[in-house]
């Protein structure tokens, strides 16, 4: 997958949107492709947080992940070896938040998943609550340093543990600047939750069509 280095992103056309608009649209986009409601809430919150601190990754990442969702959703395989919970074949948009729940209870998790960037965003968004730790296979994520996470040089995995520059999970700015192309892509997914109009369901609003009084 081709991606611009961060220095190039700043030269691209930008679009200014409100934080609420961004969060709501990401949530709807998740729902639009079929992501479960509770997972969509977590993803939207995390994306807003990272977008609000001017990290450009979320829009591109979430757009890619949503585009691949249907093909990538699959049952996760997981086991426990006495020390680690091992998660294989995981789809972040299905199981990511649940895996992080385990970490929050103090479990240590090793995870191989379809969108490690997205899992990283989710994990860092609530890192202040994580009692255990999570190893995520990075597989060449360029921007991991932006999240101030530790990349283990020998294994090429990211090790995230409590207190590691943990975010407060508070949105720092309520404006999001975004590549208009990425925004359009997310909106296309969001529009999938809308029901096509027809004369019959036009009556479902329970109101007439003209109001002259």
């Amino acid at each position: 997958m081709f991606s611009f280095p961060r220095s190039v992103w700043t030269l691209l056309p930008r679009m200014d949107i409100s934080g609420n608009e961004y969060r709501t649209t990401v949530f709807k986009a998740c729902r639009g492709v079929g992501v479960m409601y509770g997972v969509a809430e977590d993803v939207a919150d995390a994306c807003l947080f990272w977008a609000s601190v001017s990290l450009e990754v979320p829009a591109r990442t979430i757009g890619d992940a949503l585009a691949a969702y249907e093909a990538s959703k699959r049952p996760m395989e997981w086991s426990h070896d006495g020390e680690w919970v091992i998660c294989q074949n995981a789809s972040v948009l299905c199981d990511g938040p649940s895996v992080l729940d385990l970490v929050e209870t103090g479990q240590r998790v090793r995870m191989v998943c379809d969108w490690p960037e997205l899992l990283l965003l989710l994990a860092r968004h609530r890192s202040w609550r994580l009692a255990g730790g999570v190893e995520i296979s990075l597989d060449g994520i360029e921007w991991a340093d932006a999240l101030k996470a530790t990349v283990m040089p020998d294994t090429g995995v990211l090790w995230l543990r409590p207190g590691q520059g943990g975010s407060s999970a508070s949105v720092l700015s309520n404006r999001v600047t975004i590549d208009p192309h990425e925004w359009s892509r997310i909106k296309i997914f969001a529009d999938k939750i809308l029901v096509p109009a027809d004369p019959a369901n036009r009556q479902d609003a329970g109101a007439g069509l003209t109001d002259n009084d």
Binding site: M36, Y37, G38, V39, E41, W78, D95, P97, S98, L102
Partner: peptide, 12 residues
Amino acid sequence: AVFLMAHPEHRD
């Protein structure tokens, strides 16, 4: 957390 691993549909 373990329950939601098996039933992520109940998260919300």
